[in-house]
Design a protein around this nucleic acid. Structure first.
Length: 326
DNA sequence: GCGTCCAGGTCTACC
DNA sequence: GGTAGACCTGGACGC
């Protein structure tokens, strides 16, 4: 077995700040979602209500993060410690709190979403189960693109295998606060790797070519997620679909605009929830389900999507459906 | 143990 | 512009 190409970064300097959130905000449900999805990297740790994770800013510098709630769901406040290689610059002291707040969706007001519960039994169930949970964002675009590409045409265990191998072989290990956290590869690292090497080391198959091309495009200059959010939703999606291997589904996953990223698996779940039966042809029903979601939940359909996929056990029991084995 | 099938999409060639 | 077929890999399944 070839040795790992992972780099190691020690982060001895620390800075702390507090951030207020728009209530209701449940920190634990937001950063440690019931379905098990991580906030920023599959190798972060969540213990006793605190999260240790990593973050790469758009200029490429890595930081360690320790986050915990110091308020309540109705008076939410987050205590954040940032660990860095050197003392933070004045610019970083301004940028990092803004980026953490953006990532955690602290300023987003979801009370309008919760008013849908008054007339929608499904939303009422979701809100009751996951009150205060937020959708979150990623500070850097490349991990989101890796996620989208490795989810394509593969069962989730195989996607996990590809992502974990990418991180373990080409990612970065950050050491801070007595912890070691593995974080996603920088696009420059994947752009330098050979296609054959990526296929062999990370079992990416035909996706290796796409991922390398995506990495090369980002290195040459591509809008950040923050820039894409400033664009109209259609324009941002079209820009993402210019990338090799990024189609409509993947663009919906990566785009910071609220979308409804249905794949075959989630189409089966929503077909069951909306019509009470298994879809005969899940792939072909996706456009219809997307239209229904847009008409029924409007700009909050992305929230319904995230809440549903994090509440499958409760929904299965409550509506007498088998959603967990689709 | 071995062969076959197919999955949480995308691209391309062909009509 | 619409659509069938190819694409890596590995787990599930049948024999």
């Amino acid at each position: 077995m070839k040795g790992t190409l992972m780099s190691v970064s020690d982060l001895p300097c620390s800075t702390a700040f507090r951030l207020k959130a728009t209530p209701p905000y449940d920190f634990s449900l937001t950063v440690h979602k019931p379905a098990g999805w991580s906030l920023l990297t599959p190798f972060e740790t969540f213990e006793d209500g605190a999260l240790w994770s990593g973050m790469r800013l758009n200029h490429g510098e890595m930081f360690g993060l320790k986050l915990r709630a110091v308020g309540t769901v109705e008076k939410p406040e987050i205590f954040c410690e940032v660990f860095s290689r050197e003392k933070l610059s004045t610019e970083e002291r301004k940028e990092l709190p803004e980026m953490v707040a953006w990532t955690l969706s602290l300023k987003e007001d979801i009370r309008e979403f919760y008013t849908l519960a008054e007339h929608d039994p499904l939303v009422k169930s979701l809100v009751g189960d996951l009150y205060g949970m937020r959708r979150t964002k990623r500070p850097d675009i490349f991990p989101a693109l890796i996620l989208a590409v490795t989810l394509q045409m593969a069962p989730i265990r195989r996607s996990d295998q590809m992502m974990n191998l990418l991180i373990k072989n080409y990612g970065v290990k950050v050491r801070f606060d007595g912890r070691e956290i593995l974080y996603w590869p920088a696009p420059e690292r994947i752009a330098r790797a050979g296609v054959r090497e990526l296929e062999e080391r990370c079992k990416l198959g035909y996706r290796a070519k796409s991922l390398k091309r995506i990495a090369e495009t980002i290195c040459k200059g591509f809008p950040t997620l923050q820039k894409l959010e400033e664009m109209p939703a259609d324009e941002a999606k079209a820009k993402l679909m210019e990338l090799r291997g990024i189609g409509e589904y993947s663009a919906d996953i990566v785009s910071p605009h609220p979308g409804f990223a249905l794949d075959v698996w989630s189409a089966k779940i929503f077909n069951m929830l909306l019509f009470g039966e298994e879809a005969e042809s899940p792939r072909s029903i996706i456009p219809k389900l997307k239209q229904i979601a847009k008409d029924r939940w409007g700009k909050w359909r992305g929230y319904v999507f995230t809440y549903v996929l994090n509440d499958l056990n409760n929904l299965s029991r409550r509506f007498n459906l088998n959603l967990t084995e689709l």
